[in-house]
Design a protein around this nucleic acid. Structure first.
Lengths: 341, 341
DNA sequence: TATATTTGTTCAATCGTTTGAGCAAATGTA
DNA sequence: TACATTTGCTCAAACGATTGAACAAATATA
């Protein structure tokens, strides 16, 4: 009962007294093979439980049907749904997906690329680690002529296709909404400004305040790594100000939750005394009470677009990498934490 | 500036006027190659930016260094952390991981296996879809002699290595805890009893009641698909009973959250009037107020053990599949939703 | 009927690496 | 000095599929 040698096209060829080439062509529906032979081949293939060896095929044809994805952190709702969506799209087209995570580390990201290239992936889909500020490791991908698609992070950095949401405008949506609710002192729990998306959210926040003729108070901007704990810390600081904010806009949902906890622990009514808005539409934002107003990044949509962009590139023989941004309009999901009216 | 042909061991061989075989052996640190040659080869490899072609290597050596994982649903905290942990372990050993999801569908699971086998993975790590009650598709993996490791779901079904937690005993932990808190009528929002893990939780619940001399009231057992919505529905039903429960033990955290929402909407004090326990330690259970008591499945630990088991199997030349269960003791995480004392 | 075209297949090379066998030179042993 | 062993490399055949070129037979064209 040993695992009998795998059947190959050669075995099929032997049974039918034809050559392996004919078998290969028959299986690939080559027009030069007669229907009779095709049928016979497929029948025998089934009988012998033939399983094509993708490695061999990939080696010869130069196409592995593997796509590498680099994720900063798999363990995040946003990224895991984006990946899920990419996967669904690409599986349909016969591609398999290899997921690697950088854990927000520049070194790991470099190694990921190395590994993926060795695995001869047909393309790479990546979102930059927070640490990454040098991009030379991505040049290797470009110079090999392998399609490279970025999503969420890396907008202008590498000069290839990028899909993400409009962070600048998202902040406008938030501020506008809060102003409509009657807020006048809007604080911002900002992300680290070295990451472009967070910088954009800050810019958007500042410009939106100006647009609505609200004064800019830099005491109300707290840079944070956006964890729950840090959200708590920074919120405490905000509450200590002589002139408290009447709204908090956090650039991440976990920070927003941290803020909410501190507010509730201090018996501050949300949204009546302080309104609260988060960012990312993490699942828990709709689960807790009050539900948290947040920005939806259209996770599924981003994944779908990324996959489609990849397919376009991989099928375009003489494609050259060039900066090409697809910016989705984000959506404000208004929930109880900011609904004053 | 075209993508110049990739450098191969042949190119290195040409530069050094030696043969490709020598280069291959040098790169793999074969003892029969002199240190001088090894150094020279590695230097040239670096200069020419040589990237080994894993496909070719895999084809020849019969080892792809790819491991396939089948997940019922990537978009779940439990599964995504398990996968993350498996990945970390296996990456260390030079394996790459291909993730596929069955979406709880039997058909998709079959196709996943098909795909993974074609990709010539060195092993498969799987958790069964809820739908799966026939296991013949897994026999193909076994008969090919490819290591197969199951986790969380599939305990006894396929006769291979399995790693999971002790669901039966988990229910005991929960019931015991609730009894200690003074609860006498403990309801159970149970999972679908066709899935073994849920059946075990039900068995554990029933036996634990008996152990503590509590009467079994089948009205207090509600089978559910354990979604938030369904948790709400079933909880409403429980509240309509002439004789309300004083505790609810849900076999899933989302169902527990649904229960909590209904209780709060009805101004029922948790845990004073009705205590609540969930299952899985989803992140939100510690984020909301009251925090929810739940069972931790040791996600990281499971992933680590799965990976180690795979490594053991793949390195054991004459390994034969045989049922071998590793059952972890689950941990009860007591939080506010059940703390009466 | 003679020639051109199409059809259906075979032949042989190839993708890039690994690996068993072979062989000469260097080194060890008696 | 003669023989055995070790060292360091070369040779050539794989792994399993794909693919351009070749070619005979069948069919079409003039």
């Amino acid at each position: 009962m040993k695992n009998k040698r795998k059947t190959t096209i050669k075995d099929i060829a032997n049974v039918l007294k034809i050559t392996p080439s004919a078998v290969s062509r028959a299986l690939n529906d080559n027009p030069r093979i007669s229907d009779k032979t095709k049928e016979a081949v497929k029948k025998v293939a089934l009988e012998l439980e033939y399983q094509p060896n993708q490695l061999a095929s990939a080696l010869r044809s130069g196409k592995s049907n593997l796509v590498g994805i680099i994720v900063p952190k798999t363990n995040s709702y946003f990224f895991s749904t984006v990946v899920e969506s990419i996967e669904n799209e690409l599986n349909k087209e016969g591609y398999n997906v290899i997921i690697t995570q950088s854990n927000e580390s520049y070194d790991k990201e470099c190694r990921n690329i190395q590994t993926l290239l060795q695995t001869q992936v047909d393309g790479i889909i990546a979102s930059l680690a927070n640490e990454t500020i040098d991009f030379s490791h991505y040049e290797k991908i470009k110079s090999k002529g392998i399609p490279l698609i970025l999503y969420d992070r890396g907008e202008n950095d590498i000069g290839v296709d990028y899909i993400g949401i409009d962070d600048y405008e998202s902040s406008h949506l938030v501020v506008e909404h809060l102003v409509e609710q009657g807020c006048k002192r809007i604080a911002h729990l900002a992300g680290l400004s070295q990451t472009r998306i967070y910088k954009n959210r800050i810019r958007g926040y500042v410009d939106a305040l100006e647009k609505h003729h609200l004064p800019l108070d830099t005491n109300l901007i707290k840079e944070s790594n956006l964890t729950l704990e840090n959200g708590r810390e920074k919120t405490k600081e905000l509450l200590k100000l002589p002139n408290r904010p009447d709204a908090i806009y956090a650039a991440g949902d976990y920070a927003a939750l941290g803020a909410l906890q501190i507010l509730q622990e201090n018996n501050i009514k949300v949204p009546e005394e302080i309104a609260l808005v988060g960012f990312s539409n993490e699942p828990f934002t709709s689960l807790i009470r009050p539900t948290i107003t947040t920005i939806s990044q259209h996770n599924k949509e981003i994944g779908k677009l990324v996959a489609q962009q990849f397919l376009k590139r991989v099928n375009d023989k003489n494609w050259k990498p060039v900066l090409n941004k697809t910016i989705l309009k984000a959506e404000l999901i208004v929930r109880d934490s900011s609904k004053r009216k």
